[in-house]
Design a protein around this nucleic acid. Sequence first.
DNA 1: GTGAAAGCGCTAACAA
DNA 2: TTGTTAGCGCTTTCAC
Lengths: 339, 339
Amino acid sequence: MTRPTIHDVARAAGVSLSTVDRVLNDREGVRQATHIRVTQAMRDLGYERNIAAANLARRRQYRLCFILPGGPNSFMRGLEEELRARADAWEFTTLERRIVPPFDDAALVHALRGVDPAATDGVAVVATDSAMVRAAMAELRDRGVAVVTLVSDLPSSRRQHFVGIDNVQAGRTAASLLGRFCRGRPGRIVLVAGSMLVRDHAERRLGFEQVLRAEFPDQSILPPLEGLDDQDIVAAHLGRTLADHPDIVGIYSLGAGTRGVARALSRPAAPRPAVVVHELTPHSRKALLDGSFDAVIHQDPVREVQATVLVLRSLIDGAAIDPEAARIGIEVFLRDNLP
Amino acid sequence: MTRPTIHDVARAAGVSLSTVDRVLNDREGVRQATHIRVTQAMRDLGYERNIAAANLARRRQYRLCFILPGGPNSFMRGLEEELRARADAWEFTTLERRIVPPFDDAALVHALRGVDPAATDGVAVVATDSAMVRAAMAELRDRGVAVVTLVSDLPSSRRQHFVGIDNVQAGRTAASLLGRFCRGRPGRIVLVAGSMLVRDHAERRLGFEQVLRAEFPDQSILPPLEGLDDQDIVAAHLGRTLADHPDIVGIYSLGAGTRGVARALSRPAAPRPAVVVHELTPHSRKALLDGSFDAVIHQDPVREVQATVLVLRSLIDGAAIDPEAARIGIEVFLRDNLP
DNA sequence: GTGAAAGCGCTAACAA
DNA sequence: TTGTTAGCGCTTTCAC
């Protein structure tokens, strides 16, 4: 009636607990014949290992460290908040977090070097792209620490996995929405980026242009504005651009600084341009509700933390990574499907 | 260094393990003064209870039973598959599933009556709306079984929770998309439902009409087609309707039978109507990719199972339900953000 | 009211 | 190559 345990398996196979344990964990020192007997007994009884009990006995602790950029970026603050809130909610896992100055390679390298391999099993890092960073990551790997990138990837590094959305796809999705929202209104579309030096922004732009060019030939794209994720700069640049080009029918904001977009739009133009932005924050949510934005493309920080923990634990255990559990979807929010 | 355990708390408070346990679990038989001493010690040490160990010692088993409608409905089959696949992946939890004939109150009641309260702690049921079903659910509750509805709710019953999307919002979202996709093309929109007798379909229609009427006055809505979630019926009805009304610019399919929509559209009209359907299946996915559908509104069966298990366990433990963990979001898929 | 001791299912020395 | 034994952190008799 109750689930069989290693005791039952041991009895059925006529061996001791330790032998069952050896078979279970693929440890050596078991004769072929015994191995088969035990395996057979497991199969017969439908034995299913209790992982919680195993971890308890092992006193397993996955010691993970998240390295995130600081600054006003709402999305990063959301990630940080989630880490803080759920720090104690994971079984057998401790979550440490380090905040480093944003867009600062040297600081990131410093943080990576500051990770103690003796007290850390895995690291998740929002990477900035540089050779120094790559080297520091490689160093950690050499010292036996599992390393994954988070949100922004660094493909040619020795990171073992990337947890985050596909940014080219995100850009394509944005174009697909914005193009349809503007259909019947030929005109220009303006892109607001943080900086084209950041990998994810560059990828989003790429995807956006692919789809817009191919499928919405009535719309043309202005050269991207670089707002450095700063709402004041964004508001100023975008305001000027809107004034200069009365034929702007759409805006795609692919970085942070979304509040600046909302401000630039506060002076009503008729008809107001269609707007698609990234990341659901209190501000983008408000803009969606009051009708000044049309869609928000989002990645869920809660899921991102969850997937990262899962991936790191698998990596540490040398287990296979469940691709479904590790995938971060690109979410689309309109006014009516807001969470 | 290592996390404090009840041993540490006991030592610090100068009491035994049992007393700490009594305080921890709010059992009676502890003097006020002792209680305070123990609580203080926990606070001082930053004690955090190890739930896995507790469940192990308790030999806790959450025995859950899912009751789902059979038939060709892709979404239900997805749920069933997920249940099968992850039946053994939950700690301390056994998942049983029963498939009943669809849209059959009597069969559902029979299944509910067939649940053994002595061997089942919680039930999740895709409800159909009837007094008999309500009564059977109440009976289960009286026998101490936790009951939640899944996907399709039964609000005035004694179910303790509903796990699924807000269907009014889903309809609003569909209208919001379809309206914008058709903008600049005044005309008619046709609704394809399974049956208006099913609660979720009725709710989706309601939400759709709310938004379309208020925000897209250029589009008018034809009376809904009832396709009984059967692709042949849907294909026939919709084909005829499209032929009769050359001014149809949009289609919203709010039930199953999506394949029928694709078939009806296979004879090309120019420009083809904008199409929004429900549930991501291999067929709707294909239609999205080949450009015959514009958007799919989806609820994730994986998440649905997960949330249901979490909710039922909380209910059984008498614990609070985390609203975030229990929420099922309305997902929007376009060609480019397909998972 | 409180405590001692056995045990949940599994692992990890250490013997044999 | 195999078995014995003492835990992991918590719960649960049963005694005091």
